[in-house]
Design a protein around this nucleic acid. Structure first.
Length: 276
DNA sequence: AATGGGACCTGCGCGC
DNA sequence: TGCGCGCAGGTCCCAT
């Protein structure tokens, strides 16, 4: 589900709602969502700890815990947090596909909802997130990198630009919606080999990505299907999408017909007329 | 090296 | 109304 703007929105909500809180209890019904370490150790490790900070790395939410370790949540397609003033009851759990719920010492609660159950939850008993092996394989943050770095990463890559943008080993946070959108903004065909793009095209993609993500964060992300922030509210960026989900409609720029094409098994939307 | 297909899941909208 | 199909903000694994 969520891409960078949606995860960033979740993190901002979590910072305002649960930073500093003490975890007093944990309930979970889906052991399969907990990938590391065992379910029992995960539960034992979280209870009693304080959440001292929350940050985002790509599409991953990282809770800093005191006295020890980090709790990671990867939402995948439909995972998201819900902040609650009262304990989730059975009806709520069922209706919202809640699979885990934390109790805090101030009698507030944090639930993890995940309709499709692809999400991952992990606890790592390390002193530094740099010690978590797979996190190290992530690429650069698009809002904290320079064009020179972008240029260096794209140089010589033979993948199609859309697949390259979504490959988290180069830059993080771009998923299926925003990949189509940024290529429309830059007027670049999604099937162009990444390394073949001109300097001007690369620049338009890089700058477009930063501008689009900043705006999408301000609008609290894109809610097409399932995505909600931790207050269970929709994001507004769907109102600003130019091509995603608009097959057959006129291009907002040139009135050409927007097409949908599968690229790397993912629906891709673009305007063949102004993204030749 | 890059791509395609399938797997992991649940639920919704569509056409018949 | 009921049913089957296609589709969904992600990633991983295997085959070619």
């Amino acid at each position: 589900m969520p891409e960078l703007p949606e995860v960033e929105t979740m993190v901002r909500g979590l910072l305002s709602r649960v930073k500093g809180k003490q975890i007093t209890d944990l309930w979970a019904d889906e052991k399969k969502l907990i990938h590391h370490p065992s379910f029992r150790l995960f539960k034992e490790s979280l209870i009693g700890q304080q959440i001292t900070n929350i940050e985002r790395r790509g599409k991953i939410i990282i809770f800093h815990l005191q006295p020890k370790g980090f709790w990671l949540a990867h939402p995948k397609m439909t995972g998201h947090f819900l902040f609650l003033e009262s304990k989730p009851d059975d009806d709520f759990i069922k209706e919202k596909s809640v699979h885990l719920s934390l109790s805090f010492s101030d009698k507030t609660f944090l639930a993890w909802s995940d309709q499709r159950k692809f999400s991952r939850l992990e606890y790592w008993s390390v002193d530094d997130i740099a010690q978590i092996p797979w996190l190290r394989q992530l690429g650069l943050e698009p809002l904290k990198m320079s064009f020179a770095e972008f240029n260096q990463l794209i140089e010589g890559r033979r993948q199609r630009i859309k697949s390259w943008l979504m490959d988290q080993r180069f830059i993080v946070g771009v998923g299926n919606i925003y990949a189509s959108e940024v290529l429309w903004l830059a007027q670049v065909n999604p099937e162009r080999p990444a390394g073949d793009l001109s300097s001007n095209e690369r620049k338009k993609i890089f700058q477009g990505l930063q501008k689009m993500f900043k705006k999408a964060i301000i609008k609290k992300g894109t809610s097409l299907l399932e995505y909600r922030d931790i207050e269970d509210q929709k994001g507004e960026y769907a109102n600003y999408l130019q091509v995603y989900g608009r097959k057959g409609q006129p291009c907002p720029r040139c009135q050409g017909e927007i097409v949908r094409k599968m690229i790397g098994s993912r629906s891709t939307y673009y305007c063949p007329q102004c993204q030749p």
